[in-house]
Design a binder for these strands. Structure first.
Lengths: 363, 363
DNA sequence: CTGCTCGTGTTTACCGGTCAACACGAGGAG
DNA sequence: CTCCTCGTGTTGACCGGTAAACACGAGCAG
């Protein structure tokens, strides 16, 4: 493949002049520039090699987004996709690429050399999206010494200097539970997921509830407790994954008992689990919201279209992506976190959206 | 920031040895390797710079996926996301990154230097996803001289040597129309989109139908005609975008007339338009499938969950991504297209899925 | 004792650009 | 007439790695 110097030789000018023909048209006469570009075309020169240019300028021209697990899984999660939409919107404004980086939570197999993808990514900065507290991906990203913005979790220790964008999950959950409590519900159950990365399912005991690995889950759970009558400990059951199917299975168990024993309301930690709960209720002939109230979390597009439309907590997913991307771009552009330019943490509000899956409990 | 040579100097070895400590542990003693790695950590050396490494090895370690329009829009399109899911699944197997590249169809503003993102992307190859026939992004990608696989469109000229992965849209559309024709429908209308990149809406005349810029649309339209009674020219109305809302608006127009004049069936060129048609029918009190049959295209997840469940044509979206990614990876690994290794074109089947939105026309 | 191979490192040449500093002739100001 | 500035280019030094070829002592077979 022809290089910049080949073109220079063919035209009979210096390599710098060819470089300038591409980036600094004003530094040479129009005629010469034309001649250079034409020769380049004739020689099949594909233009300056981005790798070489990047090395010289020390800019990769792209930002990396870190996902837990496989990317193929991330695309399966509507919340992640919406977040990405926000990120994409603002990073293309800044004319930088977007590279997706899978960061499996497996612990390093060959000593300290796990999360290779993070180490090898050609990027100017990272966006860590919703990783667990102990995730090696975040560590690897920090080790790269590049600007890093953490989204949702893991929550950086205050003073740690890591910019952080998050949603007030606790307050959102509190609103959801308060809504239910206000309607008069006393027997409330929680449908949860991801208390840890082990994918376990079934009722969660105190120990497990005390050691939740994901900050988002921790906060939502705490928010529920905030608004429920003091001292009440709603049963929490883990679904083993965030899907309607798994939510349905778990809800089936919750709803198995006789009417006077089963919960009158379910707080689902995500919309998809709520969807599953709705399916389970339908299957069992339990009327929603007559005999059972359900509240979701996220307010994904299908929530409004569900039958009945789902009462849920809205979090600004796209906006979260926009804010995080803007913050990272500022950081890359040179703003010191916390100091003047970029704020160190941004909290986005969550808001209860009451639709048709909640009502006072049957008496 | 410390470099590989700094570490070498600190340890008192050559820089090559440090490089080997990272990539070829067998080329040096374990003790020395440990010492090097430890020193590197102490110096805050972030590991080999990916840009420099890439330059030297001539591998970027990532593949680029080209989308029409903005990325933020692509994430809005479930079909694109599903495709990406397939791509991500196979490229992470190969341990290469995934870079998303927006390729707006605008014509070059500064002479030949449009689609900058394509030219600057640090990738080893491109996947062009569903671009229009004349899209500058494809041209730019070819100009980079890197392996390129085109997905869906633009259809490369035979013998052009560009690998191509596509779905048999024409056959899928034919099946849809044949199903309707078989049920006895004679007044069929088509809900379309993207006849060109101008976003126009309204009835499409012959001239416009003759100059469709997107191959996929062209094929689906042709497939419909294949199966409809010879000589019948169903009215085609453009929606101006692929959304349920726009589909609803267009369908409202189609369904405005008295029962004996309005179509008894609608062929929607995408599921989302079909969804809009369903909404319009519901609004107008037109029973589906009693008074109106609707067939979609794509078989996105919501299609099965719609009420009533949508009859549609399934295309293997995730698989399309997998096949295309595998093909590109093979190409990057050195297989010549067409010759031995990678086949030059792969056609994926489309299949009609009959659900509950189609029935014989009311008599 | 000689000659090979093997394990460990080192030397040296790229990879393909960008950029700061400098060269040089022409036109305009003083 | 001289000096300065400006428009155009050129020189040469990086950017931060990778890899082929070579050096060298030790162990070992013949």
């Amino acid at each position: 493949m022809a290089t910049l110097r080949d073109v220079a030789a063919a035209v009979g000018v210096s390599h710098t002049t060819v470089s300038n023909a591409y980036h600094r048209p004003e530094k040479l006469s129009g005629a010469l520039r034309e001649r250079i570009l034409r020769t380049a075309r004739e020689l099949g020169y594909p233009g300056p090699n981005p790798l070489a240019a990047g090395l010289a300028t020390r800019r990769a021209g792209a930002v990396g987004v870190l996902f837990t697990e496989a990317l193929s899984y991330a695309f399966t999660d509507p919340a992640a996709v919406l977040f990405l939409q926000g990120v994409a919107g603002t990073s293309e404004l800044a004319d930088v690429g977007l590279t997706l980086i899978p960061a499996p939570p497996e612990s390093p197999s060959a000593g300290e050399w796990a999360s290779d993808a993070v180490r090898r990514a050609v990027v100017d900065g990272f966006l860590a999206y919703s990783l667990s507290d102990d995730h090696p991906g975040v560590v690897a990203a920090r080790a790269r010494g590049l600007p890093l913005v953490v989204v949702d979790e893991p929550e950086p220790r205050p003073g740690d200097g890591v910019p952080f964008v998050y949603v007030d999950d606790r307050d959102g959950a509190r609103q959801a539970a308060a809504h239910l409590a206000g309607l008069g519900h006393r027997r409330v159950a929680v449908l949860a997921d991801r208390l840890a990365a082990d994918g376990r399912s079934g009722p969660a005991d105190g120990a497990r509830l005390g050691a939740v690995t994901y900050a988002v889950v921790r906060h939502r759970l705490a928010g529920y407790l905030d608004a429920l009558p003091a001292g009440s400990r709603p049963p929490v059951v883990e679904c083993g994954g965030n899907s309607a199917e798994l939510g349905r299975a778990a809800a089936l168990g919750l709803l198995a008992g006789p009417p006077e024993e089963r919960p009158t309301a379910i707080l689902a930690i995500t919309d998809r689990l709520a969807e599953g709960a709705l399916a389970a209720a339908r299957e069992l002939g339990v009327a929603v919201p007559g005999e059972l109230s359900v509240v979701g979390f996220d307010d994904l597009p299908p929530a409004a279209a569900a039958v009945p439309p789902l009462t849920t907590v809205r979090q600004p997913l796209v906006r979260k992506g926009e804010v995080a991307a803007r913050m990272l771009l500022d950081l890359i552009a040179g703003a010191a976190p916390g100091a003047g330019g970029a704020p160190e943490r941004v909290r986005l509000p969550a808001e209860l959206v009451v639709r048709s899956t909640t009502a006072p409990p049957a008496r």
